[in-house]
Structure formats: C-alpha cells, structure tokens
Design a protein around this nucleic acid. Sequence first.
RNA 1: GCCAGUUUAGUUUAAUGGUAAAACAAAUCACUCGUAAUGAUUAGCUAUAAGUUCGAUUCUUAUAACUGGCACCA
Length: 582
Amino acid sequence: MINIKENEKLNILNHSCAHLLAHAVKHLYPNAKFWVGPVIEEGFYYDIDLGNQVIKEEDLPRIEKEMKKISKGDKYINRIELSKQEALEMFQEDPYKIDLIERMDDNTIISAYKQDDFIDLCRGPHMKTTKAMKYFKLLKVSGAYFKNDSKNKMLQRIYGICFENEEDLKNHLEMLEEAKLRDHRKIGKDLEIFMMDDLVGKGLPMYLPNGYIIWENLENYIKNKEKKLGYQHVLTPPLGNVELYKTSGHWDHYKENMFPKMEVEGEEFVLRPMNCPHHMMIYSNKLHSYKDLPIRIGEIARDCRFEASGALKGVERVRSFCQNDAHLFVTPEQIEEEFKSVVNLILESYQELKITDYRFELSLRDPEDTEKYHPDDEMWENAENKLRKVLDDIGIPYTEKIGEAAFYGPKLDVQVKPAVGNEYTLSTCQLDFCLPAKFDLKYVDRNGIKKTPVVIHRAVFGTIDRFIAYYLEETKGVLPVWMTPIQMNIIPVNNEYHLKYAEEIYDLLKDNFRVELDHRNEKLSYKMRESQTRKIPFTIILGQNEVDNKTISYRRFGTTETITVSQEKFIEFVNQVIENKG
RNA sequence: GCCAGUUUAGUUUAAUGGUAAAACAAAUCACUCGUAAUGAUUAGCUAUAAGUUCGAUUCUUAUAACUGGCACCA
C-alpha cells in the first residue's frame, strides 16, 4: 500500500486536491467554513463546518462533479504572502482560519493560495494549476471532532485520494476492495472461526470449534516459549474486589473503561480490566530473595473492558478478551536484560509466524502532563533511557511517541495495520515503577535489606483475540499446518470401492493429526472444491492405485499438483512441515 | 459515546404500497471409479416496536445490532 504522505509528488498532489475539494464544497455549500485539510497516508481529507447541514455519502458524486468542473477550468493556483495583520483581515469572516492565524508568530509570513474564486490559508506547496488534479476519488464522509476533542463540535470530514494517472487510481480502488476480502470478520465467518450474538451481547465473541483449535495452538505455542524462558503460569479469577483496584490506582485512572462495580453481601466487585493487581498478589504470597529474581508470572487471562460501542470491531476490539499476559518482577539491575529478552521473544515469535508487516513504537510520557503521569522525573528519564538503549543495542528501528506512555511507566508497543481501519497495538512491553510500590512488594537484597522490585508488564500476542484477528488477515485465512483447524481431508474416489482403505488411512492418521474423512455420497470434484474453499492444507485422494500400492496421494492447498507417496513418507513429511511451522 | 449509512432464509444477494425471489448450505431420493459445483424434491426469511394506510418488507419515528469514520484503546 502506497503511503501518500511520504511520497513527495503525491503529497503535493493530494494536498492540492484537498483544496479542490474545499473549492467545490464552497460552490455547493456557500455557508461552508473550513478547518484543515491535511494529507494523510491514505490520501487527504478536509474538515468542514456546514452549520446544521450534513454531507451524506450520496452527496459525494455531486461534489466530485463540481471538482471535475473546477479542475477542467484549469485555473492557476497562486501563492499570496501576507503579514499576520493582513491575514487576520482577509479571513475575518472565518473563525476557523482566525483560530489558526492567531496561533502563529507575529512576524511570520503567512501564505494563502488562490485558485479562481477560492482562497485558502495554506503553507503549500501546491500544483501549478487545478488541472493537475484529474484522477481523484472521494472515498468516505464522517463526523470528526473539532481539534480532535470529543468535547468540541463535530465537523464534517470528507476523505479522498488523488493520483497522477487513471491507472494508479483504478489499481488503488481495486486494492481497497480486495482488502475487504481479507477482513478478519469475513474470514472468521466463512471459516466458522468465531460468532457473536445480540442475546449474548455486543463485543462478546464466541469461538467456534475451528476458532478454538487456533486459540489452543496459539496458547500452547506461546506458553511453551515462555516456559523455556523461565516463566511460571498461574490462574487467577476474572474479577476482584474494588479495593484491589483502588490499591493499584486503576480505579482512579481507568474506571471509565471498566464495567461498573457490583455489590454482593456488602462487598464491591469489578470485572477486571487487566491482571496486574492479581499478579502483584501472587508475588506477595511469600517473601522473595534477590536470588529468586527475576520472577516471571504468566497467564492467559480473561479481562473485561467497557469499550465504547463505536470502538468494537470483530475480535480485534472487544469487551471480553484474553491477554497473553505476564509480569516480570526484577531488580533494577535486571531491567535491561529482561526487557531485551522480551523484545527478542517478540521478534522470534513474529519470525516463526512469518509476520513481517509491523513497526515498533516507544511510548514516552509527556513531562507537561503531571496529572496523568506519576511525578518522578528521575525515574522516568532513567526508565526511558534504558528502553532506548536496549532497542539501540538490538538494532531495531522505532519511533518515539510523546504522551503515549501508561500512567505508571514507558512502554514499547508493536503496531500493525489491519485490512480495514486504523493501526493498532499487537504486542506490548511496559516498564512499571509504581505498582510494586503501591502493593508494597519487597525482595531481600544481598545485604538483607528489603527493596522494591521493578515490574515489566508484557504481552507478546497482546490478546489472543486480537492476535487471531490480525493473523487471519495476514494469512488471508490460509493458516500454517500446525495451527489450522483441519489439517487434512480424505476423499475416497468412490465410496463403494475405496471407503474401506480411506477408513484405514483415517485411523492411521487420526491420533496425530486433525483429519477428516469425507464419506458423503458426492462426486470427487465436488468434494475437492469444498476442500479447497475450506483452505485445508492437505487433501488426500484415495482410489484404486492407492489401494493396490498402499500409498497416499495428496494435493496441497493452493496447488494443482498431485503427489503420491508411501504412508510412512507422508506422515514423515507432514510432521516435518508442522515442525518447521510451515 | 458522537456523525453518517446499512439491516430480506444458515450464507450471499434480488424484488415490490397488494401472496417475497434466486443461488449456495440443510433434509430426502436417485446418480457415483481420479482432482474446484450430478440431478430432482422438500423445508426455511423481510431485525424489533410503534405510526401513516383499506393494506407496510417497502413510507415515517424510535430501539437494537452491524458498517465507515471521530473520540477512546490491547
């Protein structure tokens, strides 16, 4: 997918196209007031205040038509330079532009661009004439809060994209259509992986037999890896006393995202939104020596968060989910090594699962925001520098995000982009100096003095739910053999003559593989078609040749080639594929 | 939660202010010998509630869920 923002030519083109859009909207809606119209990775948008009027999807063709008309007029796009005072006068009718101008330095030269009867405040640069914007498409409309603040008025936002030629535009629109086909919600339905039901409640996915096989495989995969790294797994309840969350600080910082508390026998409980407090209690169950550290407590743990209804999306964003969570209790000296080990675990898992399209983001505090962040400059700086050092040592590229840290410490996130919609966090690794202190956790150091450990929160798969969503999209539903619900499907050429041998082979395979025998009275090609649409990796065809020679003929998903081998060779081969995570 | 849109059978999609249609899936019967759809028959549907109307799946309103964004976020 092309990044419009980072492509110099397309950036200017799309920016100019945003002006063209505003120009057309001004013609059709003379009362329109314009906020900003930036270029984004996916093209451009413009935020517009139409008073009480709204733009609907069905209005877009009309706006496009007007844009085409202006474009054909081939007007020059002229740059005008103004002093702040001149700019304030020129845009005195427009409160949004005044807002922008007033925040500029008194001495800066402010530029505006004029095309025919339309003038807009803008830094530029722009194309020379309106004719340059010929191959564009308005994609969607939505409401968007003024200045991205939900307390403000909602403006109308129109999204679009512009290319240099028709071919590029056509290809791009086709790509957007194709992306919808690999949306995990579609694949999840087609392959019977998960379902939702209103009667259960929105945002509460139920994993069907196929989905749970994927789930179990992922769970076992990551737990085995964790065990090798010295993690100990635990099981804790999905709810807890409100006092637990008051102690942890989550009640103050996170209450809005939690299901409301429930009172039973005079006690107040909440469904837990995260597992940290429970794991803190597990640590504090006994006194630890510095020799025991790091202590690594892991759990595939169910959490419930009260997500805004508009935020829910398939199993990517839900109200009940399972985290692949762990808390590492370390001494300050062990932070770097443990953090490094987590990053390597993430990298290794991604590599084995052949996930390639992701990026690291280091989330730091905003030092100005003293309300959100635990006020301890030294702690923050120390922690942030340690994370930077590890990332630089390993040599992975990352971007820094100010003000994205958790309230208790900085974190490293792995960001991925889904088929449809915005980037989200898959894996996370967070440093925490606050929680252990709040729970008064201690270890005894080599001098017999009690000290407070540091906690690293980490989730490699993030949540199993979201990971499944992402993985289905990455693989287009063609899962590796070790993970896929049905690994092989046996089709006898003719039930009357070959079913017996097929049953023999089924018995041979069924204890070690997830295998199905299709003994329905259907034609071979009919069964073959279904085997392919279900994306089953191995379709085994057994006819007279196989019966006579005691062999197995199989076809791999996505190929048309048939391979015939001995029974032993087949088993050996499949085991090898599974072993190699192929 | 906010802005907009959508909602017809298990699934994908038609149609209409006057008896709601097809394909796939399901069930039954017949046919089965080599790599992406054998044929016939049967059963099954207008999200929910109210309103307008002689009559509403169609128009209006509300509710719910879903979709695209915004805000929020694993």
